[in-house]
Amino acid sequence: MTLFSYHPGDTLWHTLDVRCKCLLMCLLSLAVLKTGLPGNIICLCVLMGILKMLGVGPVKLVTQLKCFLLLLTLIFFCRWAVTPGHPMVTLHGFSLTRQGFASAGLVSLRFLVVMLLGLILTVTTRSMEIKAAVQWFFKPVPFIPEKRVAVMVGLALKFMPLILDNAREVTHAVNARCGNLRKNPVRRLVNLAWPLLKKTFQSADDLSLAMQARCYSENRTDARFFSNGKEGWVVGLTFIFCAGIVLMG
């Protein structure tokens, strides 16, 4: 959780216009899906370099992303085990193939790269800026009330720590009265979830009063965007980079 939060700073990546950052992110994830193993490795190195500049070194990455890396390993072996081809290693009559190794490596590498892209975005961008960008992108799309969506996103982000706190409290309260000794799993689940939801919905009611008291309306002042004037360059370079890795194959 801590890794995926905004780290203040004033690097190029921090000051870039958010809308530009979101575009770059889409561009790069598409390029990554289209390119092969060498392109992905180059991309990975570049992203690791950028993360290092942002103060997230490889050691921190590995320790904080343990679960994700585990999942990645799982996907890798799954894929490796099921792809047919020339046998590379044979265990108990079960063979792992060279083709499998290559395709499994590519798939997991793609995952890793896409994840790191997301990480760079969340580390350098305040969530409310992403919210504003979402609103901006949806403005021209008909039938989508972009301001309402933006408010919902903001509120959801606000509710998350509140629910986590409530969940911790409820768990303690239930366990303090030996609720964890209940055998029936349905009862246990309900005993945990029901007080949590009751509490959370009550805070939601309070919040709706607080918002009404401050004149909530959907006709709100638009969000502002900051730019550092280097967006053109960055987009241009990223285009060349993407074209490069896609052509490389």
Binding site: R126, S127, M128, G154, L155, L157, K158, L162, S203, D206, L207, L209, A210, M211, A213, R214
Partner: peptide, 16 residues
């Protein structure tokens, strides 16, 4: 008429 509610946590809306 501005109102400061009893519970400070449930009246905070934005994230800065």
């Amino acid at each position: 008429v501005g109102m400061v509610f009893q519970d400070p946590d449930t009246q905070i809306i934005a994230d800065t």
